[in-house]
Design a protein around this nucleic acid. Structure first.
Lengths: 189, 189, 189, 189
DNA sequence: TATGAATGAGCCTTCATTCAT
DNA sequence: AATGAATGAAGGCTCATTCAT
């Protein structure tokens, strides 16, 4: 019978995630997180070296899970368009769950805070790249077939468009997904 | 022979714009702006009442000009797709000039600081709405014709997609525009 | 054997009080208070949410204690004039201890900054009112007996007169009190 | 026919007085004064070396006039109590007209801002002294006759009490004056 | 490990005063 | 004398991070 030991690190992770989702990076301070976990501020720093890393970690883990699912879909044997729809559904769900954090997708290299070296933008780059690798396995229409940048661009467009749909029209999930499919399928065979 | 008088207000405007573009709203402080203009911090406040207004002003002016152009295009007598291309070119140019500021798009609904409510998000709402009004005059494909939300969604998707293209692939302007046209034309007749 | 733990909150309270007494509200800044306590500015804000609250707190606590004493006196069974002397002694002592803070009396109605509305004036109103309630239980001379404003006016006059006596003639406590008694007893039976 | 030349110095004086009356010393800034006079801020400094001197000047001139009147009354041949009533009426009127400035009466030596050497408190000392000289010529009741500090104390009490009456009960002028007479006459023969 | 008070650099904004024109 | 833009020191407050217990 396993002893119920509170997994503080997880606790922090989840609480911070909720807060970041609701208020965004700058809208959350370490005290809020600590309070939500019922621990002291100092304790946070026993598990995560700083606010930035904590945020980054949340971002990474959130998407790791998503990528697992995307990979599975990718291995299925089905037409690209069908795959793409499944793709989009998974991405939509992820962003829907993460709300606020989703927005940080739009912080790329340029918008990094100059003083604090937050490498969030860097993470986004990785996210886009990973996503594009998956997309690269889908067949494109002739016109785009030989364009080396099509995959990364599709992944970028898909992600930011999903984010804004989730944010601006949260009630219309199904329709949003349909739009997004139509949108991306423009390029898919 | 034009008098060479330094137009401080313009100076501030431009310097601030560059900085906001590069570092985002939160990444810029009034001292940075003042230093970039070689003026004292206090001087900034002779021209703009506060940081938020300065930013908002940059945003507004940037887009005012753009809307003038978009309106002109809208009145032209030509097929929707042609119009749309011209549209996208204008928008692309605007965002290209303003770069990073585009990212503040994220300040829409959810992610506004609970405490310091700068009304940037409010501005973005207006921007999206105005844009969608213009788009509403273009004929959509049958499938989308009776969807009341299509215009606003197209404007949202167009804007965020343009922002990310400009940001991530600044060297491929022509190709980006082509993609964006293909993307949006998916919905246009 | 009492533990010698520095009570920071008390420390701040006392230091701030001394400074406010000496220099008035506007003459004191948070840095001065912090320096007097040998703490960082930020620490102040761990104990009091802002300068105004800190000041108000000092004001309130100072007078809370005083009102307890005044109430006790009020319940005694003795001629009004005797009561009044006891009253005045207590008030004099309070003001003597708090000195300069008394001057903030001026923050009543009119002279409040239009912009930064600290509610010191509001507090003074309450103070005057409470005081007048106590005074109302004392018998007035016939001439003033039916005047509804006599109590509040007496409390106002008593307080400001005490403040100025304490301030201008700190060495003559006994004589000051005698004057004040004569002054107020003009109206008391 | 005298040319109508705007007396700028007088203009500044009057505008500043009105503003100081309404908003108090700290509630008025040089720009407000300049705007009220329709002159540039810099121009103010051609007439008054700084804000403090301007304020002081207003204070002095305001009271100079009052002292002229008080002196006249003092020379009249009438019972002390009658004189005193006339006295109080003049003082009441002065303070009533000056409202906000009246309050600065209560800034005595202690409450001077430490950094800026404002000698307002100093002025108040002079005011009290002058006033007490006038009062000294009135006959006191036996009990107080040989008290060297009675005159200054009476002047202090009279002034601050008048200020608070004017401020707190502006509608009851006549009654206020009656109270003040009763109050001070306690000491006058 | 946990605590949470302490830190202090940093931010936005104000305003009396100066000075080139 | 008049102008009013420019100055920059201050002031109130925040918050990521540290550290003694």
């Amino acid at each position: 019978m396993p002893k119920i030991i509170r997994d503080v690190k997880k606790d922090i992770f989840l609480s911070a995630m909720q807060l970041f989702c609701e208020f965004g990076y700058d809208g959350v301070d370490m005290k809020m997180i600590a309070e939500k976990c019922n621990i002291a501020v100092g304790t946070l720093y026993n598990y995560y070296p700083n606010k930035n890393e904590l945020f980054l970690n949340i971002l990474k883990v959130s998407w790791e899970d998503t990528f697992l699912k995307l990979n599975k879909i990718n291995m299925l044997n089905m037409p690209s368009k069908q795959k793409m729809r499944k793709f989009i559904e998974v991405i939509y769900n992820t962003i829907e769950k993460r709300r606020g954090i989703g927005w940080e997708v739009k912080k790329t290299k340029r918008c990094t805070h100059p003083k604090k070296d937050n490498n969030i933008g860097q993470f986004m780059q990785v996210l886009f790249t990973d996503m594009s690798t998956l997309i690269s396995s889908m067949e494109k229409k002739d016109k785009y077939q030989h364009d080396p940048s099509i995959d990364i661009k599709l992944s970028e467009i898909l992600l930011v468009s999903t984010v804004i749909m989730v944010d601006a029209h949260p009630q219309e999930k199904q329709k949003n997904i349909d739009y997004l499919c139509d949108l991306i399928n423009t390029f898919i065979l």
